[in-house]
Design a protein around this nucleic acid. Structure first.
Lengths: 204, 204
DNA sequence: AGATTAATCGGAGAGTTCTCCGTTTACAAG
DNA sequence: CTTGTAAACGGAGAACTCTCCGATTAATCT
């Protein structure tokens, strides 16, 4: 009888297949972009049945999440425990702009995958990484501007950092990543300062 | 030889089928929600071939856009030429909050369809209604806070008014529509005021 | 080693989206 | 009314996502 503790480790063949699938998928995306990865084809190239892909990752979104995972871990590590201004140690307001800027870089680094994630069901769109971002940002907002509703404000500041919007801003509006980051930084500054003056004050 | 002027009117059978398809799709959505409308089934119920649905509307997104169209016209009419504060006549800052609030109502009124639109390709996500919203909001922003980058700011304020985010905020965060609208209004106020003070001023 | 068993495997199949193309039809001109 | 033709029709089919379940196999127990 196995000890019930950590989630039962995968069987050897299962782990092997998981790795193979991730490896193949990553290579295919590197070569042909993330837009039209067919899980059927991933399975075929990886030499496993389609069922195996779905049992291992649940669905398309699950695979995307797995492909994102490595860099995602590093990113979360960086803003949760890395050096300031992204990590702890800097004033909240500075950490907020640092975080939003880093998040833009993060999304751009795996833009195709984030676009995929965006198209998926609500569960994964706002589950997974989003929850972590939201908690982090809301926490910083509490410190930077205690008078605001941190949960809503965090959603509102996170919303523009969206893979598809960023792609659109780059391609159709001709903005550079730096311009987007600058815009967000300015917005964050205005917001964190603005919420500290009582509503209705300093009109015009 | 037909006169080449307005886009050639549809043939009678084509127009009849277009109407029938829209009618059937609208009824099916009213009954079973917009999540899982199968265009195959729409075609079957409407008594036409699948090819007809696709020739008439291009793709799933095209049909969604058509289903949205009626109310969309009215909405655009309202903010472009209706009574203030939504329409012309009120100060820009007030029109901005009025617009964002009305947009929330607009999205909620056909939430299922807007969620569908959101999942579609970039072309339609940021084509169609979005362009109109953006131009309108950017125009107002130029008046309300000339120092800001209106294009970016419009994107940033439009981003949180997203069908899926709103659904998430309602279901998972327990927010009401009124709370969401209030949050946006406050954000818009802070932003329009905040961008009028020089950057770097009034820290903390 | 041999038996046991539960996890894993693979691929057939159901349900979709969208395309292609031979056939049919509306309608304008003669 | 007949005829010509561009537009529209419809359904077979390609490609995909995801489910199901009988066969297989890794890991454990005796």
């Amino acid at each position: 009888m196995p000890v019930i503790g950590q989630p039962q480790p995968e069987r050897a063949d299962a782990a092997r297949n998981r790795r193979k699938i991730i490896e193949v998928a990553a290579r295919m995306i590197a070569e042909h972009g993330a837009d039209d990865i067919s899980l059927d084809e991933v399975a075929r190239v990886a030499g496993v049945g389609v069922g195996t892909v779905y049992r291992r990752f649940g669905d398309r979104a699950g695979l995307v999440l797995a492909l994102i995972d490595d860099q995602e871990r590093q990113f979360q590590e960086a803003f949760l425990a890395g050096p300031p201004p992204l990590g702890p140690g800097a004033p909240a307001a500075e950490r907020i702009t640092a975080f939003l800027g880093a998040l833009v870089d993060r999304v751009v680094a795996q833009q195709g995958l984030f676009v995929q994630l965006d198209k998926c069901g609500k569960t994964l769109r706002y589950g997974g990484p989003y929850r972590v971002y939201h908690v982090h940002l809301a926490t910083l907002l509490v410190q930077a501007c205690p008078k605001a509703d941190p949960a809503f404000l965090a959603d509102a500041l996170l919303a523009p950092v969206n893979a598809r919007l960023i792609a659109f801003q780059q391609e159709e509006r001709g903005m550079t990543i730096e311009e987007i980051k600058a815009g967000l930084a300015r917005l964050a500054t205005v917001v964190t300062c603005g919420y500290n003056v009582p509503p209705g004050g300093s009109r015009r």
